[in-house]
Design a protein around this nucleic acid. Structure first.
Lengths: 189, 189, 189, 189
DNA sequence: GATGAATGAGACTTCATTCAT
DNA sequence: CATGAATGAAGTCTCATTCAT
């Protein structure tokens, strides 16, 4: 049943978030999922192979946040502000998952899947840039596909620095938010 | 003897790079270092505690590359081009170490040290921005401390996408390089 | 249905032959038999309990080969030659089954059944010796029941040495065949 | 230390003899040997890999019995009687080891080693036949190398039938002993 | 300081067996 | 009768850590 698989995925996200990937035992996952030890292996060959499912979940969360936060009809400045704050918000609320994905992706053989899992975000960003380009809101020499990756890397890396590595004050976060918004606006114009 | 400690660090970098952090056993490290199993524990309490030493090494490598590649007397455009290509070069040549640090940092208790280990790069970047600011080469509303982090995140995340996750063609790399250089120039001006 | 039982026996012979008894799982058997996991237990309580059925099958194969190869009306020398070559042939063609039975019998609780399963061969051999005795073709002090066991052990052990343990050339096999035939003739006369 | 290795071999023989190969767990062996679980793996990768050491031991036991039982200066009949009774005696006293070796050898990848492990017995038997041949005690058309294998197979298979598979009376054993002695004398003359 | 054989806790994984459908 | 998802007991094996030399 897919019910059990879903339970495993949820329990894995939970346990990975709490304990980290390496400190999570299969026994932790199955206990959290309320299933038998052997059942885990009916669905996944190892805890690492749950990773892509978690990544999918994370990207879905990102996209939900993006879609609900950004109105493509707004002007560029507004959209940039909304975009940055959406990424900040999701990074903050799911920081364990993102930390975990970074750790897991950097080490596993699932790296290649990352590209395709992330593509909804890349695609959305590309569309975003294209529309802005058509409206003449951004530089003309922007390749939307290439810049979408650069832009996502820019915003996420800043968010990660803030929420994963440091524990900055709210003021600090806001200041960095503004600095990044200005940086991004300037970069695109 | 510091000789042995140095051997351990080098062997750990080597083994972590080849096998990844989690798949490296103490026995792998001591074999590579040519020392006895017990000797490791005279210098480090665990393989994870070698991590900060490796991070230090990585940042030293970055700074060497930066210093040898960038002439602060050059004009801004030239310096941006040199900066991006220096980060690309070092990311490519030490990609295993960076992947490893990413994985290791995101999970360990050594996260807090990251900030101080990375500070030479942040400091250099801040100085770089300040000089450019004084010469009027960049926007006036740039806070050099904040933007140094943003800028490093921007360039490194793009380099990582290219060298760690994808295996792009040389043409692709160059195109992305140019896109990033334009993006950065525009962001700073 | 007996259909399913037969399928299980055949699949078990196949799997035991390929993988050996210990390395064969119930899941291998049911997969090969095209039935469900639970169905196996409707017919057999364990994989070992299929063993006697396999032994029966093996003895039937031996007897078929014997009956089709030996004409009791022939003279003794001819019959000995035919007997040895029949056992050689069957050992070669069913070597995996014999190796398996050897391994399985030596360890299981089904050892006692061996005697009764093998009795058709012992009985045939006893009759063979008795007829030869009546015709005065063999020594007088032969007890046909005892010697039948000795004789079967002799021929089978030689065949097993050749086909199970070594991988000898055809020449080697023929030479050993002739040596055994002479040995046997001399033993019986 | 070889001390530990020897302990493991002895404990393995003991446990295999008592429980059979498949029912013996590594934990049984290490408990019997008085060592830690992990220590076993310093010397052997699996319980099966102890098998060749056991086979060596078994052949040594056979050779000891043979050497102490047979006087090559005796006449042929006496030597055959002594040979058969020596093999009967050793098979009886080490029946568990022989049963175990049969089971183990028939299934493992160590089959090829069997030939070389058994060679002392083959060699001795070959010499035995050669001496008898020189004295004119046996048939002239005997190839001592080939017949040594046949002869060993003959005597051992009879002994195994008696001691491993059946549980015959002492009278029965003696009767079979005599039958085999006559059979062998006749075969060689 | 250095060694490396020995330890043993504990995680992984398998797979015979069950039982609700 | 037949099914096959689920179970969980049990065994394997690893590997960080110790400590006598």
């Amino acid at each position: 049943m897919l019910d059990k698989k879903q339970k495993i995925i949820e329990a894995t996200i939970e346990q990975f978030s709490i304990k980290g990937v390496e400190n999570t035992k299969i026994s932790d996952i199955v206990r959290a999922a309320g299933i038998a030890q052997g059942t885990f292996y009916l669905y996944f060959p190892s805890k690492f192979s749950v990773m892509p499912e978690i990544a999918k979940f994370a990207v879905e969360e990102i996209m939900k946040e993006i879609h609900s936060s950004i109105n493509l009809a707004d002007d560029l400045d507004k959209k940039i502000e909304d975009l940055v704050s959406a990424v900040f918000r999701i990074t903050d609320s799911k920081k364990e998952i993102f930390a975990m994905l970074y750790a897991g992706l950097a080490q596993s053989e699932h790296l290649k899947q990352w590209e395709s899992i992330y593509s909804p975000f890349y695609d959305w960003m590309c569309t975003f840039l294209q529309q802005s380009s058509e409206k003449g809101e951004i530089r003309e020499n922007i390749n939307c596909s290439r810049t979408s990756r650069i832009l996502i890397g820019l915003i996420e890396s800043t968010a990660e620095q803030l929420y994963l590595y440091d524990s900055p004050s709210q003021d600090e976060i806001e200041a960095q938010y503004k600095e990044l918004v200005e940086f991004t606006k300037s970069a695109l114009k």
